[in-house]
């Protein structure tokens, strides 16, 4: 292999081939790559320590979690801690509540976003550019200014304590998703619309029969983000919900703390359970997720 490496491909001054036939250029590259891997693996381990320690704690007995010196791998993994966490606290209930919110928000975004984005991406009408800027403007305003007026409005509508305040807004389209969708729809060739129009298809048929099926990647991003944001949302359910039975997992877990804070093994098991859906989703959708983030440069 070394011999076939053509000198032509390398500028002459880069090639430092010794008499003994060792390709030092290649050695240098190998060492460089190895160093990169060592460095990245070390850093990755440091970053994962908190999560790994959480996992380790969740599998220990009570004496073990306070043992000195600390053991990374418990003698006998206490899977029972997970069962205990489920039994002593309504984790299943909280997660089901979160799931209801996720489903509600997902339906909302999927109904509203494509329709709104289609208007901005494809249809021509006076005032479009101004409306587009207006549509994006809420992304620049901190959402917290809305909390009190909306709370008072929901109070009047007798919706405080229900899931409506946490689901309703999604039916009017999230600006980030609309932007993402508009960008995506613009990449679809207009010839497809024109051809369909010549065949007699109307505007809405074109949207739902032609454009939307081609937007599956963008729709996936919307579903993934909606899941993440809804599952992780804390402040809003905290404000709107007061009945323990209705808490989503974020709020439920925060209140878990006060009651069982000594039993860290069980508590860490509960915390891990609470992020399990996120971890699973993340590992399946990380490519779309990170791609979607880079599109607009937004963070999670």
């Amino acid at each position: 292999m070394n011999q076939t490496n053509p000198a032509l491909a390398q500028p002459a001054h880069n090639k430092r081939k010794n008499n003994d036939g060792i390709d030092w250029q290649r050695v240098q590259r190998w060492v460089g790559t190895a160093l990169v891997y060592v460095l990245m693996t070390t850093l990755a381990l440091i970053f994962m320590i908190p999560l790994l320690w959480m996992l380790s704690t969740s599998l220990k007995t009570r004496p073990e979690i306070f043992a000195w010196p600390p053991e990374w791998v418990p003698a006998v993994p206490q899977w029972g801690n997970y069962a205990d966490a489920f039994n002593s606290y309504p984790l299943g209930r909280f997660m089901a509540n979160s799931m209801i919110l996720v489903i509600g928000n997902t339906i909302g975004e999927l109904v509203s976003v494509p329709l709104i984005a289609y208007a901005f991406a494809r249809l021509r009408f006076p005032g479009k550019s101004i409306l587009f800027v207006l549509m994006l403007s809420p992304m620049m305003i901190p959402g917290h200014i809305r909390l009190i007026p909306l709370y008072s409005a929901y109070l009047r509508l007798d919706m405080v304590g229900t899931y409506w305040p946490l689901i309703l807004p999604s039916f009017f389209g999230n600006p980030f998703f609309i932007f993402l969708m508009v960008q995506y729809m613009r990449t679809i060739p207009r010839d497809l619309d024109e051809a369909a129009r010549i065949d007699g298809a109307g505007t809405w048929t074109i949207l739902y029969r032609i454009i939307l099926p081609l937007c599956i990647p963008a729709l996936t991003i919307i579903v993934v983000f909606t899941f993440l944001w809804t599952w992780n949302d804390f402040l809003q359910p905290l404000i709107y919900l007061s009945d323990f039975e209705t808490y989503p997992i974020s709020v439920g877990l925060a209140f878990f703390q006060g009651r069982y804070s000594v039993e860290w093994n069980m508590f860490m098991a509960a915390t891990l359970i609470s992020i399990l859906p996120i971890l699973v989703l993340y590992f399946f959708a990380q490519k779309q997720l990170i791609g979607g983030l880079s599109t607009l440069g937004l963070k999670g």
Binding site: L228, L253, S274
Partner: peptide
């Protein structure tokens, strides 16, 4: 791996 901490819920991270 490095992006993972950014997607985990604030409550779980705080408790951890």
């Amino acid at each position: 791996v490095f992006y993972l901490p950014a997607v985990i819920s604030g409550v779980a991270v705080a408790l951890m």
